[in-house]
Design a protein around this nucleic acid. Sequence first.
DNA 1: GACATATATTCCAATATAGGAATATATGTA
DNA 2: TACATATATTCCTATATTGGAATATATGTC
Lengths: 122, 122
Amino acid sequence: MARAATTTDVFNAIAEPRRRELIGVLADGREYAVGDVVLRLRMAQPAVSKHLGVLRKVGVVSVVKRGQHRMYRLNAAQLKPVHDWVKAFERYWTHQLDQIKQRAEKKALERLISNASKKKEE
Amino acid sequence: MARAATTTDVFNAIAEPRRRELIGVLADGREYAVGDVVLRLRMAQPAVSKHLGVLRKVGVVSVVKRGQHRMYRLNAAQLKPVHDWVKAFERYWTHQLDQIKQRAEKKALERLISNASKKKEE
DNA sequence: GACATATATTCCAATATAGGAATATATGTA
DNA sequence: TACATATATTCCTATATTGGAATATATGTC
């Protein structure tokens, strides 16, 4: 089996950094024509069209035609699954200094143990 | 250019659902041998080893040898970039009912406008 | 040493990609 | 109609992937 298509789900779609940049441009909630994005990101037009196509397929952006322009708008709600998933790990880095210290000490201890066992094994 | 390697960064690494499942197993912060994960997820052993290898390369898990076992542990802090990125869009879905209503109305209005302009263009 | 267990690595196949270049398709305008 | 603008699509190439099967590499135990 090959790697899952980028259009499989949001996780695959946002793995590509250019697409995250695209989303960044649309992040203010306003609609943008393809050309606007091309100018802002200085990306080739076909690249922008293709990336927007991927984002559209997973529902992260929506399009409406207006004259010869296609106006793209962010559909941020589709990013929620990513947020939900990663939010579960929030506590590992939000808990303040004392926690960080605790973890540093724990890590140092683990390193000692790890090194000790490595030496034994070599 | 081909798609970026899965080991390029966390975003690419977590795009694969099996790897998110792996992370899910390690989510309690305890360490697990490869065999433990194989049993829990009923995945083939080589698959587990490979996926853990990817996660290790991007720093999401760490390993220590212990006897014939390799104990993997989650390094959740490495997931922070994902959290930071997606957190910027939080407001789009966390704001309560009245906000959702507002958005629905806005959307309905936009749809009217969009349809109107579509009709003009056809 | 012989054998079992735990894990990693290699080889294979099929597949989807991203970018670039060229081209096609609308649409607007004179 | 002819031309310009905006956008999408097609074709190309190089590359990395995932899973499976087989195999290699520790390590533990008798």
